[in-house]
């Protein structure tokens, strides 16, 4: 089997840039008044997949079994691929000469727009899988709704990504059931993970002025409209997993979408951005 050529060599990077030009026409990209909100909203989509993808990649070489290690790395790869599409479009909307890489590697924590849920530490494998499930259940409904976006560019990214994400949701649902309804120890760990993560889930459904602007433009659904769909999936899977829905507020934690993060994000960025910060423009 031939080994893969280095994808960071300039010709390949240049080819990818040129291939991404000449895309489907989208009137929203010309709407100057909408630009700031559209850009921010695209960063919310892309930053959440970027940070969760990075978190999952931390398991590479550390998975409890080989199959899980490979599955987590492949899922991370899907998220990073989706990030390239979302942040690539964000860069086009912004039209300030920045690329998806610039947005990923050269923004500071306060400029990141991901929900806090995805930046929390991995914890044990149970916590990682539970977080994945809670996110996937939202991600699947969000992308399904975005398939009807009035922005053709957003709709085509969503149609592509939802196929990958339906697979993520299938896998994470199955594992939550297996571990929740598993041994005494696995059940306890899954319940502890759910209790810990629960207050962070509400942020996915909380709207603000940015959401209102893109909702009014028909680009994205009202985040609150996804809540009943998410609750249906979560309630059903948790019941099958013999886990208790925590008896506490699910919307206590906010701020990630507005750039107010936990201290964990800084550590992620320190690792992820070090090379580009220390050696600007470096490639290998």
């Amino acid at each position: 089997m031939p080994s893969l050529p280095d994808v960071m060599i300039p010709e390949v990077a240049d080819l990818a840039r040129r291939a991404a030009s000449g895309q489907t026409a989208d009137p929203h990209l010309e709407d100057v008044a909408l630009k700031p909100a559209f850009f921010d909203w695209l960063c919310r989509m892309g930053d959440s997949t970027l940070i969760l993808g990075h978190r999952l990649s931390e398991w590479c070489g550390h998975g409890p079994v080989l199959e899980e290690d490979i599955a987590l790395a492949n899922t991370a790869l899907d998220f990073i691929g989706q990030t390239q599409l979302w942040l690539g479009l964000a860069a086009e909307v912004e039209a300030q000469g920045r690329s998806a890489d610039d947005l990923a590697f050269l923004r500071d924590a306060m400029k990141f727009r991901n929900v806090k849920l995805v930046e929390l530490p991995n914890g044990d494998i149970g916590q990682t899988l539970m977080r994945g499930f809670l996110f996937d259940a939202w991600h699947f409904e969000m992308l399904t709704a975005l398939g009807n976006s009035t922005s053709p560019r957003v709709a085509e990214i969503a149609a592509k990504a939802v196929k990958e994400v339906s697979y993520h949701l299938e896998r994470s649902s199955d594992l939550v059931v297996r571990l929740g309804d598993g041994t005494e120890q696995s059940h306890e760990r899954m319940q502890a993970a759910l209790d810990y993560l629960w207050p962070y889930t509400g942020e996915m459904f909380a709207g603000d002025a940015i959401d209102r602007a893109v909702t009014e433009a028909g680009i994205a659904p009202d985040p609150a409209a996804l809540l009943p769909l998410w609750q249906r999936t979560v309630t059903e899977v948790l019941a099958e997993a013999t886990l208790q829905v925590p008896d506490r507020r699910f919307d206590a934690q906010h701020g990630g979408k507005q750039g107010r993060h936990t201290e964990h994000l800084g550590y992620i960025l320190a690792q992820m951005q070090f090379l580009q910060r220390a050696y600007p423009g470096a490639s290998w």
Partner: peptide, 17 residues
């Protein structure tokens, strides 16, 4: 016109080349 298989497939750029 080429369509990617998976959005994060590392082979995509290599295929284009």
């Amino acid at each position: 016109a080429v369509t990617p298989t998976y959005s994060g497939c590392p082979a995509t750029a290599v295929i284009d080349l």
